[in-house]
Amino acid sequence: MNIEQLIVALASAAAVAALILVAFGLGFRAKPTLESEDAVRARLAEAEPDASPSDILIAKDGAAAIVRLADGRIAVLRAVGDRFAIRVFPRDALAVAAVAEGLRITFADLGFPALKLRVEAAPSWLAPH
């Protein structure tokens, strides 16, 4: 990398930082929540039209929900910025552990990091194991 490239990289980094600050300053930081089971069903139906929800667990802060589908698979809805990322996993692809204030769920996918779910208690179908 020559000096000219270094200057371009540093100027670009400064511009990136400035644009991020502008984006926050303009208020582009909405946090969507899942208020009810109907809301969970609606979002799931849009992303996974063939999924048939059986049981629904919504986090206390509404930032995520776990759904047991009729075929035994698990759907995960989590807020990512102002959108939700929705994935369906086989039950055995999730590792569930009890932690303070809820559950920690890990997935075998680098693009879908562990999720801390604030819940009162884990339902039997999502029991830590």
């Binding site: 984006a23 303009l26 582009f28 930081r29 102002d82 959108r83």
Partner: peptide
């Protein structure tokens, strides 16, 4: 249109 600061970042 839509923006999210974290996404844009």
């Amino acid at each position: 249109g839509a923006y999210d600061a974290r996404d844009a970042g």
